[in-house]
Amino acid sequence: MLRRECAVTLNCNFDTALTQNYHSQSQIIRILTESWVSENMYCPHCGHNALNHFPNNKAVADFYCPTCNSEYELKSKAGSIGHKIADGAYHTFIDRITSNNNPDFFIMNYNKQFLSVNNLWIIPKHFFIPDIIEQRKPLSANAQRKGWIGCNILIDKIPAQAKIDIIHNSMPVPKELVQAQMQQASRLYTNNLSARGWLLDILNCVNSIKTETFSLSDMYQFETLLTIKHPNNHNIRAKIRQQLQLLRDKGFVDFLDRGVYKKSLH
């Protein structure tokens, strides 16, 4: 097998010796990817050099940091990440991400031919809201788990600022930079789901504007969309201005002039 090293201390290759006695493809991939995290990953929050594995029956979280107690869930996919990633039971997932101890998420893209990690993101927990979780159709009456309802994580609905690279194209991002980006992303933390939803909606609107500099008029183009998403708010334009001020205070946009802003990340 061709081996690829992403760094002296971070080996991108899976340990295939661990799966010699397994035949289920899904089980093999789970063992390879989870073992890789156990053997290679540090804590992106505090920098501790190893993560511990939870027991397999732990709902939603896979790993935790023994130093700062941060929890992590791993999602992996062969080939490109695409627009969505399949997850487990819908209601279990929603309950956990809306709780006060929801986990951060590792999103891994691996090479099926070389059995190695191509890309690895971390998405901080406060970027997860019910709006980015898609409920799948219940399994049919003929299925072994009839009526079971799964879900998908809609990657496209997560702001670009939340997709923090740990490995990019088989090359690691320096640990210090990962931690700095996690610290920047933490500026957007709030445990209030409604406030979190508004802040992320406005950030996504800002990101969708193609120019670096933009105006309130540009933001007001999203008024109809935001009205549909937040039907109980009857003053959408005022809410847009309020959220832009919050994004300015948190360092994600700069105020240039009356009604004029610039994308930024200090």
Rank of each mutant, 00 (worst) to 15 (best):
A59T: 11
N192C: 14
L18V: 13
I166D: 01
N13W: 00
R187Q: 12
G197Q: 05
N102E: 04
A78M: 09
P44K: 03
L265Q: 09
D218E: 07
Q27L: 08
S99H: 06
L244F: 03
F93D: 00
I107F: 08
C68S: 10
K210N: 12
C12P: 07
N11M: 05
A89N: 14
E176F: 01
T190P: 05
V8A: 14
P55E: 12
K84V: 06
N69P: 02
F127K: 00
N142L: 15
P172I: 13
W148L: 13
S194P: 01
Q113N: 10
I28P: 05
T224G: 02
I107A: 03
I164P: 00
T92E: 12
N109D: 14
T16A: 11
A86T: 14
H126P: 00
L216F: 03
E34M: 12
Q183Y: 09
N13L: 08
G147L: 05
S215N: 05
A162G: 04
I153R: 00
Q184I: 15
Y110I: 03
H23D: 10
H45V: 15
Q25M: 11
K262Y: 00
L51G: 05
Y220A: 06
N109I: 06
S99G: 14
S140G: 15
Y22L: 15
D257G: 05
K210V: 11
N52G: 15
L216V: 06
Y189F: 15
R248A: 13
A160V: 08
S217W: 04
S99L: 09
Q161F: 11
V117P: 00
L188H: 01
G150T: 08
L74E: 01
R258L: 13
F252T: 01
T227M: 10
L154W: 02
R237L: 07
D249I: 05
A17F: 07
I133T: 10
I236E: 00
T224A: 11
I129W: 00
R145T: 07
D254W: 03
P172F: 01
T67G: 03
H230L: 03
A180F: 08
Y42E: 13
I209K: 00
H53N: 10
R258D: 15
S208E: 11
C43Y: 01
I133G: 02
N102L: 04
I28A: 04
K58R: 13
E212L: 11
H48D: 07
D95F: 14
T213V: 12
P103Q: 09
H234R: 11
N109L: 03
